[in-house]
């Protein structure tokens, strides 16, 4: 039945491609999460009236974030080819897509982290300071827990965007469902392959969104 509807689909290949997409998305999401929170916290704490208020650092970090956020992803991949080659020795395979995915997504997520942190009640930070908390304590025990729902829903949005990025990363031979849809589907004129790859990408996106929403609700005690 399925084979009649999708006569050209090679299920083994489809499974491998799905795995590659999930792998690239998962690794990139985890590293983006950490890096984005790091950059976001620096942005937040160096802004005016905050603990590390510092106009220069804030401006430089903010500019860097804006630059990388503004470069279209497809251009970023090409620009990063020499860097990837230097880092991994190759520009092929799922791992080769990771530097571009992370550098593309982390600044985007850092902005969302900044927004999330700004939403925290200033009074709560003041209360922690009044108790004699160190900045590290404030980061770990106030900033991150108090903004967690926004941090989670932000990383969910970012992860969904990353699924799209992995499809583009297929251009440099990273594999994945996007690559399969383009090479096997579009270029060989096999619409059923493109369609099946699309369905699987949608399934991946829906699962990510579902997990994200579930955790967001779970951690939100407001």
């Amino acid at each position: 039945m399925l084979n009649q509807l999708f006569p050209n689909v090679d299920w083994g290949k489809m499974l491998d491609a799905t795995y590659e997409t999930v792998y690239m998305t998962a690794v990139a999401t985890v590293i983006t999460f950490i890096l984005g929170i790091l950059i976001g916290i620096v942005l937040f704490l160096t802004s005016d009236n905050q603990l590390w208020a510092n106009k220069i650092v804030h401006f430089l970090t903010g500019s860097l974030v804006n630059i990388f956020r503004s470069i279209p992803f497809i251009v970023l991949i090409i620009l990063l080819i020499p860097f990837t080659k230097f880092l991994l020795g190759t520009i092929r395979g799922a791992n080769a897509a990771l530097p571009a995915l992370i550098i593309g997504a982390a600044p985007f997520y850092a902005r969302m982290v900044l927004i999330a942190l700004r939403e925290i009640d200033k009074g709560v930070i003041e209360a922690a300071r009044s108790m004699g908390a160190k900045t590290s304590t404030i980061i770990w025990k106030v900033l991150i827990p108090e903004s967690l729902p926004a941090l989670i829903s932000g990383i969910t949005v970012t992860a969904v965007a990353l699924v799209g990025y992995t499809a583009m990363a297929g251009i440099i031979g990273a594999g994945g469902l996007g690559n399969l849809a383009f090479l096997d589907g579009f270029q060989r004129n096999r619409t059923d392959v493109t369609l099946m790859a699309t369905v699987l990408i949608l399934v991946v996106v829906f699962i990510i969104q579902y997990i994200g929403d579930f955790i967001t609700v779970k951690v939100d005690k407001r």
Binding site: V124, A127, R129, S130, M131, P145, E146
Partner: peptide, 29 residues
């Protein structure tokens, strides 16, 4: 500051923590 504590108009409790955990916060510090 651990010997000069403060209470606030808008309470400024951590919503992510239970009553017990909120009270334990200054002790953790």
């Amino acid at each position: 500051r651990q010997k000069i504590s403060m209470i606030f108009q808008h309470f400024n409790l951590l919503w992510s923590r239970t009553v017990e955990e909120n009270i334990a916060f200054p002790l953790e510090i």
